[in-house]
Simulated assay, not measured.
Amino acid sequence: MALGNDSTATTFVLMGLTQQPKLQLPLFLLFLGIYAVTVVENLGLILLIAVSPLLHTPMYYFLSSLSFIHLCSSTVITPKMLMNFLGKKNTIIYSECMAQLFFFAFFVVAESHLLTAMAYDCYVAICSLLLYHVIMSSQGCSLLVIVPFILGFLSALAHTCAMMKLSFCKSHIIIHYFCDVLPLLNLFCYSTHLNEILLFIIAGFNTLTPTLAVFISYAFIFRSILGIRSSEGRSKAFGTCSSHLMAVGIYFRSITFMYIKPPSSNSLEQEKVFSVFYTMVVPMLNPLIYSLRNKDVKNALRKVFVGR
């Protein structure tokens, strides 16, 4: 069935995570719990940073923006997936599918570059401490947050526009629980080679460039840390960036596995399992990583709830 100009009227069927009826309710409860924790953690961290003067610093400004991205990205994916666990017909119309694709790509790319900005913040804090407040001025911090969102918008726009130019003629069954690029490429009538090249270029730029920038930043950071004579000073300096380094490692490893390889080599069933990790688990883990390892966050929480 060639759709052409009638593609906007198309309805897709989302296969979801599993077709086993016995697993639907347990998985619904599991992911409902994960989503609830994700919303509470990220929204709570955003509000805590907003109301706590102790956290009004560049690092927490970036962390607040990261929590906003996690809150939005999980909301783009999870509610629809939860509805599909309970519904008999797990359908999504063309316009909703394209919107989900756009916002998912937007927030994924924005997160990649925001993590890079946070690595630069760590670099300046350790390697150029005397110039920290000059470099990380309010204008500088705003620019470091705005640029990732701009890059996210442009990348998402490129992906979505390229997808909308193609016609669907194969099965309208998406072997996934949301509208991602790779599962959609399997539904097109003609060769998707150009789309696959576009995906590889955009994913490569938005993954390898931030990874290289983070690697260079941490090379300078570790060199500076090793130059500190006291063990207490080295421990304090490393503690400044350890949470971010952990978050970067988890995020880029999962994204690189998914997208930096030929799309034809992917197993769609395997992708569903790994995509659960970066669409649901990572947004839930990051607030815990930053909060549990951070004395400032703990002190701010104590002041909010205990008052001292």
Rank of each mutant, 00 (worst) to 15 (best):
F188A: 07
V76D: 08
A9R: 02
I146Y: 10
F277A: 04
F85S: 01
E96M: 02
F153M: 11
Q20A: 13
F12R: 03
L182M: 12
T116N: 07
A213Q: 09
L143H: 04
G16L: 06
M81N: 00
A2K: 10
C179H: 00
I49P: 03
I255G: 02
K295R: 12
T116P: 01
F205Y: 14
V108D: 06
Y251F: 15
A125Q: 13
T11I: 11
F220S: 15
R229G: 07
F188R: 04
V13M: 10
C122E: 05
G87R: 15
I202Q: 11
T207F: 14
K272C: 08
H70D: 06
A105T: 02
C72V: 14
I34D: 03
G233A: 13
L151P: 12
L194H: 07
T57N: 06
L292Y: 14
L48P: 03
F220L: 14
L3Q: 09
L226P: 04
A247D: 08
Y259S: 13
V51S: 04
H193F: 09
S137F: 03
T256V: 07
F215C: 11
A50M: 06
L199K: 00
L292P: 00
I175A: 12
L45E: 02
F274E: 11
E41Q: 15
R308H: 10
V134K: 12
F149W: 11
F238W: 11
T11K: 07
I250W: 06
S224W: 05
I135K: 08
H159F: 12
I49Y: 09
A125N: 10
K80Q: 14
V124C: 04
F28I: 01
G16S: 09
V134H: 09
L30V: 12
L14W: 00
S242V: 09
F252H: 15
C179E: 02
L66N: 09
L66P: 02
G249P: 06
M1Y: 07
Y132C: 02
F68N: 03
Y94T: 01
